[in-house]
Amino acid sequence: MYSDQILPAIKAQVGQRRVEKIDVSGAVSAWNPSYLKTAIERSDSAPAQKNDPDGIRTVVVGTLGRQSKKVSVREVPDGTLTR
C-alpha cells in the first residue's frame, strides 16, 4: 500500500464507528507529514524527512475526521515490535 493510501483505507474500514484512540507509532522522525497526502513511493522529488509529530497528528486528524486528543504519535526505535 502506498503511503497516501493508508489513511483513506483506515477511514473506509472504520467509517463512522466510534474510535477511542488512534496510535501512530514507528519511525516518526523519518517521515514528513506530506508523505500521508502524496505517496513518497511514486514521487520523483520526495519532500525531505522531517521530525514533525504534530504535523503527522494534524494530517491524521484531518483525514480521518477525528478529535486531536484521540491521536497519539510516538517514535518507536527501528526493529521494535509494539503489537
Rank of each mutant, 00 (worst) to 15 (best):
K70Y: 06
D23H: 12
V59P: 01
S29Y: 06
P33F: 09
A9R: 07
D4N: 14
V76R: 00
R17C: 01
V61W: 01
G55F: 10
A46E: 00
K50R: 10
A9M: 09
V61M: 04
P47M: 13
Y35F: 15
E20F: 07
L7F: 05
S43M: 08
R17V: 03
A48V: 07
T63Q: 03
R57W: 13
K50D: 06
D78M: 15
S72E: 13
Y35P: 00
L64E: 00
S68I: 07
K37S: 07
V61E: 01
T58V: 09
D4F: 11
L7M: 05
A48C: 05
G26F: 13
D23R: 14
V28D: 00
R74V: 09
T63E: 15
E75S: 10
I22L: 11
K37T: 10
G65P: 01
R57Y: 05
R66C: 04
I56N: 01
V19C: 09
S45D: 06
R74P: 03
I22C: 07
K70A: 08
A12G: 13
G26S: 08
S68R: 01
S34V: 03
T63Y: 03
M1N: 11
R42W: 02
W31E: 02
W31H: 02
S3L: 14
G15N: 04
K50M: 13
G65Y: 06
